[in-house]
Design a protein around this nucleic acid. Sequence first.
RNA 1: GUGGUCGUAGCUCAGUUGGCAGAGCACAAGGUUGUGGUCCUUGGGGUCGCGGGUUCGAGCCCCGUCGACCACCCCA
Length: 423
Amino acid sequence: MSSIKAPRGTADILPADSWKWQSVESIARQVARLYHFQEIRTPIFEYTELFHRGVGETTDIVSKETFTFTDRGGDSITLRPEGTAGVVRAVIENNLIAQEGSRAKVFYIGPNFRYERPQKGRLRQHWQFGVEAFGIAQPEQDVECILLQLDFYRRCGLKDFVLHINSLGDAESKTRYRDALVRFLTPQKSSLSEDSQRRLTENPLRILDSKDPRDVEACKGAPPAVDSLSDRSRAHFQRVQELLQGAAAFEANANLVRGFDYYTETLWEVTAPGLGAQNAIGGGGRYDNLVETLGGRPTPGVGFGAGIERLLIALDAQQAQLPDPRGPLIWLIAHGPAARQACWDLLRELRSAGIAADIDLSDRSIKAQFKQADRESAKLCLILGDDELKNGQVTVKNLGTGEQSSIPRVELIERMRSMIPDF
RNA sequence: GUGGUCGUAGCUCAGUUGGCAGAGCACAAGGUUGUGGUCCUUGGGGUCGCGGGUUCGAGCCCCGUCGACCACCCCA
């Protein structure tokens, strides 16, 4: 009988690593709280149409990377490939931004699904921490999101990363830029890569992002997006950069474009070394027309998504130390049947008192029990045998220092309570 | 979807022109009948990814397939 494996492009998060996830998620929640973003949880699947209208029919993500199926009732369902569309749908549907002047600042942590060929830093299911801020068109809102994201990375211990920013401007600016780019690139169409020749009509902005040397060469001297910005968009982007001055290092990158159609004005991406070719650990931007596109009252919005797997890879590459959310563990060691019963009682008492404790239940040698305590990274061992039972004592061994002492059984819980915070 | 590299013990990997399935680490027991993290001894562990073919004989050669890794595309 062959064993069943996890589907391609998925990964189990095992005990050896799950504490890192808890740590990152806890930091994400903490940072969100500091910036006053509240959690929203939306379904991991939506009606397919949401992503077609929201993310864009012609984007690669929607046109060829979705997990889409027909449910038993005949509706087309898609596993979400990104977080923003579902959140926008939810805030519209639940009237969070129903009125003139409504604001909402929300964050989410959850999985996204894209049917792609896996490689380093790229899976078919990946997790993102993301935030969305609705109702504020001012550049301060863009910068608040950016600073939140960078704060998140710093608190996770990430040191080496780069913030890239660009602006495509409002819808008119975007069209103007697109036309300018097509005008610039069309004369040299034959020297572009095959992919980019196709993009020239479908999605010319993406050509700027190509890694093909022919495209990189062709894009030299291309008009930057900022040249096509309207006065309002130019001022907005200018103000974003002013607000970032002194708050965060950034690089204005005229070639930065992103894969969703809904972006307007500011967009940004954070890259980090150690990730191979997929070096973006998170990105975001403003989407002032998306709420209206999805049937809501016209409301500006801005937000980002930060990939958790990629962050963990980058942290690993930089040998960053995440705070370990696991508290200290006490290990009980029993010698003899009477002591085993006493340990069982003690174990229940410790846990009732809120102290994490465990014991080997397989009746093994003292040596084996110590060995396991060590392997489980216990801080203290409590040893109970015939001697201790007779004297009403418990032997306490500090596994870090090897020191050992006796504590009266009746005082044990209180003594543990006072010792635990030191670990 | 395209291309390259690779699948042998729980992990990292050796395995010669095709000829008995190996090492280190890890794990278990013992050395020490009450003491881990060092040391010594012993031991248990294998559908050589899966399926087919060639051969007296396949981990090794051939075909197919699945998966992993890396890159393209795209993105977190």
